[in-house]
């Protein structure tokens, strides 16, 4: 049981990264980027494909992922959030279109959407502590995601740009009055979100030694789940929710069978949403409307 819980923490770390990506785009733009997971998947997939074609090793995969991922995310943000701007629903529909098109393109690419292998230098290396087997790469993923979360939190809290992003998220009109360019904040938030996503996708691919088509939707759905569970208020909540979900899923699947693993998260989210009117914190923010 403890063993699975620890494995769950590593997944929780991944969820935290994905949740942070959504936190940034939703937080700043009040728009939901449904193409987020697919864009990450595409970048890691292409990264892995190019790297294996050129015979490059795993650090190159990450570099390639970023080279594909960041421009692609900016393009998506430009199309869906800058060009389509009148209504959040339209933006969401546009990202949906991008999601469908990208995923299908990958399915029809030379790789056919099948798993692209990514070498994992830490394959099968584990630590033994208190009679528990802990995979080193899992520990690294957890550490990486916690560090990323702390860095982002510090960045948002301390730096000038981070504060500008927060003002922009709080109320775009005030931000504009203060001379903060919403467009610029969008670009910065998108880049960070994409960076975080690429880290998540890449480390997931490393841990699994492969990446395939399903990662895209998985990442989007998990990210959204975390966004709902953790709320849009604080990074601490996001990370806690993510770690909690990771552990709950693994432990839950131990109890009710692996076939139903994903049910834990979906069950939690539905339960939480059902209870939300009763434990309603006053979350209303200016600029929260559509």
């Amino acid at each position: 049981m403890l063993q699975t819980a620890i494995e769950g923490l590593a997944y929780g770390g991944l969820y935290a990264l994905l949740g942070l990506g959504f936190f940034l785009t939703y937080g700043v733009l009040r728009r939901i980027d449904l193409a987020y997971g697919t864009v990450i998947m595409t970048s890691v997939y292409l990264g892995a494909m190019i790297a294996s074609g050129l015979g490059l090793s795993w650090p190159a995969v990450f570099a390639l992922t970023l080279t594909v991922g960041i421009p692609l995310s900016l393009l998506v943000a430009y199309i869906a959030f800058v060009l389509v701007r009148h209504d959040a629903r339209f933006s969401m529909a546009a990202t949906l279109g991008i999601w469908m098109a990208l995923e299908e393109l990958i399915l029809q690419s030379p790789g056919r959407g099948r798993g692209q292998s990514v070498t994992n230098p830490l394959q099968d290396q584990s630590l033994w502590a208190w009679g528990l087997q802990i995979r080193i790469d899992h520990v690294l993923i957890l550490a990486l995601s916690l560090v990323t979360a702390v860095l982002i939190a510090r960045f948002l809290a301390m730096s000038r740009v981070g504060r500008a992003i927060r003002v922009s998220a709080y109320d775009p009109t005030i931000a504009a009055l203060l001379g903060i360019s919403h467009r610029r904040m969008l670009v910065i938030a998108t880049i960070i979100a994409s960076l975080v996503g690429c880290i998540a996708g890449w480390s997931f691919a490393m841990a699994q030694s492969a990446i395939d088509l399903h990662f895209g939707m998985w990442a989007t759905v998990k990210g959204l789940v975390i966004l709902v569970l953790g709320g849009t208020q604080s990074i601490v909540f996001i990370v806690t929710a993510a770690l909690g979900l990771g552990v709950a899923e693994r432990v839950g699947s131990e109890v009710i069978g692996t076939g139903y693993r994903d049910l834990v998260g979906y069950g939690l989210i539905l339960l939480l949403l059902a209870c939300e009117p009763f434990l309603r914190r006053d979350e209303s923010q200016p600029g929260d409307g559509r």
Binding site: Y26, V221, D262, G265, Y266, I269
Partner: peptide
């Protein structure tokens, strides 16, 4: 439960429900 909430919650709940049903 979910249609009382505003914003994106309803959409996400439908996604979660759809996946839950599929599982």
């Amino acid at each position: 439960p979910t249609l009382r909430l505003k914003g994106y919650h309803f959409t996400i709940a439908t996604v979660a429900f759809a996946e839950a049903v599929r599982v």
